[in-house]
């Protein structure tokens, strides 16, 4: 396919992600203006990080005037799952993609964009990925800006209901793959169960002692995603090694 049409087909696949991003971005923008962050700051945050969880966390920590080292460690733990996501996406990239383009692709590898692109057949082209990322990226920043400017425009129930769209997006990425492949079905079930178990384990540890803090970090959401999903993938890969036809 030509470069231009690759970009276009990316745009077409990617724009629905904005539907899920806008309400969350509104919420982030509203939160930022409520805590007294200026508009350039919150929009710069959106453009530089392109993440909801990270941005909400840093705002939370700024409001309590946390020290830099604490902020750095907290954000690092939250973002560790990105390594797993990017590792999987890197394996699907067309090997001919150069270093410069990878710099941009990495910027846009959010949970939702990852979910959408990872189920595409065959190797991924840079221009397709840029198309997928373009609209959600600017929708995210725009949403943060509008949220900061106009505050609570939407009733809370509507914002909350649109939050479901973020999960629906990930469900839509998972279910077709689960339907087609038994091992993927098993890995999804196992990882989902582990995630629930870890979440429950996390409630058993309060942050009082050093050990408690360690375990609480270990079973945080990011920790769960890393440990739980790696463990499930490991077990299922051992039980059901991929057939050789799968390398395209």
């Amino acid at each position: 396919m030509e470069k231009k049409s690759l970009f276009k087909s990316g745009l077409k696949d990617g724009y629905p992600i904005s539907l899920g991003y806008l309400p969350v971005a509104f919420t982030v923008g509203i939160g930022a203006s409520n805590m007294g962050l200026t508009l350039p700051t919150s929009v710069a945050m959106a453009l530089l990080s392109f993440t909801g969880v990270g941005q909400l966390t840093v705002m939370d920590l700024i409001s309590t005037q946390e020290r830099y080292i604490g902020i750095f460690l907290a954000l690092l733990v939250i973002n560790l799952r990105n390594i797993v996501l990017s590792l999987a996406l890197a394996g699907k990239l067309d090997p001919k993609i150069g270093f410069g383009k990878k710099l941009f692709i990495a910027m846009g590898n959010t949970d939702e964009i990852f979910a959408l692109t990872i189920r595409k057949e065959g190797k991924l082209q840079a221009n397709y990925l840029f198309g997928v990322m373009a609209v959600p990226y600017f929708a995210w920043a725009l949403g943060v800006m509008i949220g900061g400017l106009v505050g609570d425009v939407l009733p809370h129930q509507i914002t909350a209901a649109l939050g479901m769209a973020l999960y629906a997006m990930i469900i839509a990425a998972l279910i077709p793959a689960v339907k087609e492949s038994r091992p993927i079905f098993y890995v999804a079930i196992l990882s989902g169960i582990l995630s629930c178990v870890f979440k429950w384990l996390n409630t058993l540890f309060n942050g009082d002692s050093a050990i408690g803090q360690l375990f609480s970090a270990l079973f945080s959401k990011s920790g769960v995603i890393i440990i739980g999903s790696l463990l499930s993938a490991l077990i299922i890969a051992y039980k059901f090694p991929v057939k050789d036809k799968e390398d395209k």
Binding site: F114, A173, V187, I189, G192, S232
Partner: peptide, 10 residues
């Protein structure tokens, strides 16, 4: 091959 789906589920 399985990792992405494990991540999505968690």
């Amino acid at each position: 091959a399985y990792l992405p789906y494990a991540v999505l589920s968690s």
